[in-house]
Amino acid sequence: MAKNFSEMTWKEFGLAFMVTNPGCSAEYRTGDWRSQRPIADKSKCIKCGVCYLSCPDGAINLAADGTYDFDYDHCKGCGICATECWTGCISMVEEEN
């Protein structure tokens, strides 16, 4: 985790506040505004990967057994994976908090 922005002075940011380590948003938990989370009934999964391909945020990862896991630190809960899943193994459930 990079240093918290809100603690940095104006002198500590680089030229024009450019980000010189692209992809660093992965260091931040950007999934915390999610209101619904996807869950999977893996018994129905045919390992087609359509969820992985359709996720707009790269928040679905290939698991060792060929199925897919959700990265809840970065998933925004958009529900596209649940809509696209051919076998209906993904469903959206309310976040409790």
Binding site: F13, F17, M18, P22
Partner: peptide, 20 residues
């Protein structure tokens, strides 16, 4: 050697950007 330019300036950053 990629960089990202013109990032969003959330309230925790915008003021410091303008000062700089």
């Amino acid at each position: 050697k990629p960089v990202s330019m013109g990032m969003v300036g959330i309230p925790e950053i915008y003021f410091e950007a303008k000062k700089a």
